[in-house]
């Protein structure tokens, strides 16, 4: 498939935004039961702002993928059958939750109205909203991934690994960003978020490696024989019917050499997994305020390569019909 930068940016930016929100709420949950140091309103409001900006930037990027962005509102109508439609509904919900979560922290609606668990867990408005946000963030990961995983013709994508990759990679980058944000503010949560970022990065490494291995030995269902219905082992296309390009020759192929693909794969395997882990571990040892930021940026750069490769790797059966110009 042709890797469109609008979609690469959309999926990576909102993934980091959702992950950051999940990180903020995880921090709130831990601090409300006094497991980690409590943070002020600025931390949650600031973090929510960054998360919201990432979600807005992702949504903005997605508009560049549309031929008719002015009609985008129509995309919410077929949520019964289309994962794309479901994403279009859940993404604004996510943005609303993040906005109000940050706002309620900012204006200080954090007085507990009920204390659960025998005086252990104080529940306030932000905790309830945050819990709702967790459900929505996870739903958004599933919706985004299922857009790709549900297309059975793209067999490289049609696997539960796709959902795992989108979720774990998004959470890894989000928690990495939370660690970077904590390092920037100079609070004591770098180690806490860094640990979670390492855990999610390792989970993502598991699912991503599994999907790479699966796709390396994937045997495609369609062949030139089934494409034109002629039973012969040797069929060659002599003409695709036109000499110039068409939508079919542009949209479904990356137009890069196999060597370039291998290079991108190597790049993301280094930039997403070992390098950020190394940087975050070093920053923990050195107590560095800048290395977690570098770790996030390196991992995000790697995620761009990862998403590019995700698209380029998928082979669409329609390419069987477009192999020879004349």
């Amino acid at each position: 498939m042709h890797p469109a930068f609008s979609v690469i940016l959309l999926t990576t930016l909102i993934g980091a935004g959702q992950g950051l929100f999940l990180a903020l709420f995880t921090g709130q949950l831990y601090s409300s039961i006094k497991l980690i140091e409590a943070q002020g309103a600025d931390f949650y409001a600031g973090g929510s702002t960054i998360s919201l900006l990432l979600l807005i930037a992702g949504l903005g990027a997605s508009f560049f993928h549309l031929g008719r962005p002015e009609r985008a509102w129509r995309a919410a109508s077929k949520w019964r059958t289309s994962w794309l439609s479901r994403e279009v509904i859940v993404l604004p919900l996510m943005m609303a939750v993040v906005f109000f979560y940050g706002l309620f922290h900012y204006i200080g609606w954090t007085e507990p109205f009920y204390v659960a668990g025998g005086g252990i867990l104080p529940i306030d408005v932000t905790l309830v909203l945050g819990f709702l946000g967790v459900v929505i963030a996870l739903a958004l990961f599933v919706c985004t991934a299922m857009i790709y995983a549900s297309v059975k013709f793209l067999e490289e994508w049609h696997s539960p690994y796709t959902v795992g990759n989108f979720t774990f990679l998004g959470m890894a980058s989000g928690f990495m960003l939370a660690a970077a944000f904590s390092a920037y503010l100079g609070n004591h949560l770098v180690g806490f978020y860094g640990t979670w970022a390492v855990i999610f990065t390792l989970l993502a490494l598991g699912t991503r490696t599994a999907s790479l291995l699966r796709n390396a030995t994937l045997k495609h269902k369609s062949t030139l024989q089934t494409a034109i219905g002629v039973r012969h082992r040797q069929i060659v296309q002599k003409s695709q019917g036109f000499t110039g390009g068409s939508f079919n020759t542009r949209e479904f192929f990356h137009h890069q050499s196999p060597e370039f693909l291998k290079l991108v794969r190597l790049a993301f395997l280094v930039l997403v997994f070992p390098l950020p882990l190394f940087l975050i571990l070093i920053s923990y040892v050195l107590q560095s305020p800048t290395l977690p930021i570098a770790a996030f940026l390196v991992q995000y750069l790697g995620l761009l390569a990862e998403r590019w490769y995700f698209f380029a790797e998928a082979r669409h059966p329609q390419n069987l019909y477009y192999q020879s110009i004349a």
């Binding site: 549309l66 031929g67 008719r68 289309s82 857009i147 013709f153 949209e251 669409h316 329609q318 390419n319």
Partner: peptide
């Protein structure tokens, strides 16, 4: 149509063109 091209991905025959 909003021109998202998703339907063309979901056609194995490549008969939809933007």
């Amino acid at each position: 149509c909003i021109g998202c091209k998703y339907c063309s991905w979901a056609c194995p025959y490549g008969v939809r063109e933007l």
